[in-house]
Amino acid sequence: MPHDHPHPHNRPLSDVELRVKALESILTEKELIDPEAIDLIVETYETKIGPRNGARVVARAWSDPAYKERLLSDATAAISELGFSGVQGEDMVVVENTDEVHNIVVCTLCSCYPWPTLGLPPVWYKAAPYRAKVVKDPRGVLEEFGVTLPEDTEIRVWDSNAELRYLVLPKRPDGTDGMTEEQLAELVTRDAMIGTDVLTAQ
């Protein structure tokens, strides 16, 4: 579909743009794909599936000890209780941050990431520097994210794969005792659920 949306003609299409357009146009012609379905897929991942989902899981675990227990023993089932399941989230493991242990998630080989709870991964998660460094120098990586942990905190790095996806259950910030689940969810950042952020009550 060459021109179904306008784009400014101030530069010629790049090589990758041409390759993607060529592929989409041929596959559409062969009736192997439906461009409108692509619009819908993209819209879903831009507006509906993202880290707010994961934040709700975290806030529920902080608020409901029985839920937290289920989440840590069978994450896939506990997460789907909240309605989050599907592609790239079929087998989930949740790892809990405590005073003693801090967890970080990576996919050294590519970009495995829990889509139903976090959406699509940020660019840095998929790029070479993070994948290379975090398994060797996790503290150095955390510093690049502005996070310094006490020296005696054990850091565990989890390398995701196509079969298993990890979500970090961050430590609940101090001073949040009276907060509702909704308020708690607001505190949870995407990076905290990857393990490259620690949360405060701000």
């Binding site: 993607v20 596959l27 192997l32 794909i33 439906d34 379905a37 692509i38 619009d39 592609v87």
Partner: peptide
Amino acid sequence: WERRMFGLFISC
């Protein structure tokens, strides 16, 4: 093009 690429991947 990244949007279209993502959708093509899922569709195929």
